[in-house]
Simulated assay, not measured.
Amino acid sequence: MTAVGTHNEKTRVAWLEKTLQRIPAGSRILDAGAGEQQFRRFCTHLNYVAQDFGQYDGTGDVRGLQMGKWDQSNLDIVSDITAIPEPNASFDGIMCIEVLEHLSDPILAFREFSRLLKPDGQLIVTAPFCSLTHFAPYHFYTGFNRYFFEKHLNACGFRVDELVENGNYFEYLAQEVRRIPNVAERYANIRPTRLETYAVRLVLSMLGRFSARDKGSSELLHYGCLVLATKK
């Protein structure tokens, strides 16, 4: 079966690892909304600080997609992301990975990041263009496009240096087509028939063929934005 629709996380993580390696050794970096600190492994050359509000327990309100278990017992800072108890200009870099959709006011978070960063400090952000309900009740936005970042990062004192649109329209549709069997079983209490399973494979094959010849459909829809910005 074609791999279309399976590259979202792999591409995002590879970009993040490469971007973090470009930050000079010894720099102090804040992982804002760090969760279980899964990206700490890319920061061994940095002075890593993990922050989160620490209230998500893995089950949330049970609705939508939940993790089941969630361990936040090893955070350095437990606080609201818009009021982090650190002095002005106390970090060389900040990363905020797949967090914005869980914030009731992401623009306030950008302002806080601007306060916390030294001049020329770097902000690394990724966020979905569109997302299913997850980590509820802490899920407030379905996603963000390039115009959100270009407008609000600039207004909060940042220069966008790199903005990558991860995936494209066909890749995103394929990702969701792959979810159909599980969603059908959970919400309709039914499993696809043999013919329906074949239809899913046929659609994935079609989407893979279209994606291979894609020429810019990411402007309509994609997995999410990968952003590197500098504090002006």
Rank of each mutant, 00 (worst) to 15 (best):
H222Q: 08
L204F: 08
E185D: 13
V99D: 10
I97A: 04
I23N: 11
L65K: 13
Q72C: 09
G216Y: 13
D161Y: 01
A109L: 09
T19H: 01
Q38G: 02
L202I: 07
P128G: 12
H102K: 03
I190A: 14
M206H: 11
Y147W: 10
R146I: 04
A3P: 00
R186P: 00
L132V: 07
G54W: 10
R12D: 08
R12N: 07
I190H: 09
E101P: 04
N189I: 00
G64F: 12
I84T: 14
K69Y: 11
R209P: 00
E196V: 09
K231I: 12
R111P: 00
I23F: 14
N88T: 15
M95G: 05
K118A: 07
H45C: 00
A50N: 03
S104Y: 07
F53Q: 10
L202Q: 11
R40H: 13
A188D: 04
E171M: 04
E171N: 09
T2H: 13
R41W: 02
Y198T: 12
G35P: 00
L108Y: 08
F113H: 12
Y223C: 04
N145P: 01
Q55I: 15
F148K: 07
A109F: 15
F110Q: 04
I190Q: 08
E219S: 13
R159Q: 08
R179L: 11
N47R: 11
R213G: 03
H45I: 00
A155C: 02
F110E: 05
I180L: 15
L228W: 03
I84S: 03
E86R: 08
L195R: 12
Q175E: 11
L65S: 11
A184N: 05
E162K: 09
H7S: 15
L228I: 10
S217Q: 02
A14C: 01
G157F: 07
F91P: 01
M1P: 02
C130F: 15
S217T: 15
I190E: 04
F135C: 01
W70C: 01
R179Q: 10
Y198R: 14
E185H: 10
S131N: 12
F91M: 06
I180A: 15
Y187A: 00
R63W: 11
G93Q: 02
L46H: 13
V200P: 00
R186T: 14
A109Y: 14
A184T: 10
T11C: 07
F170D: 01
H7A: 15
K10N: 10
A174N: 04
A136Y: 05
G58V: 09
R213T: 13
D161K: 06
V160G: 02
G157V: 08
A50T: 06
E17G: 14
A50L: 07
P85D: 15
H102G: 03
M67Q: 09
Y187I: 01
N182G: 15
L123K: 05
N168L: 05
F140V: 12
L204G: 03
D57F: 07
D161H: 05
W15Q: 10
G64A: 13
A32K: 01
Y172E: 04
R63D: 08
F149P: 00
L100V: 10
Y147A: 06
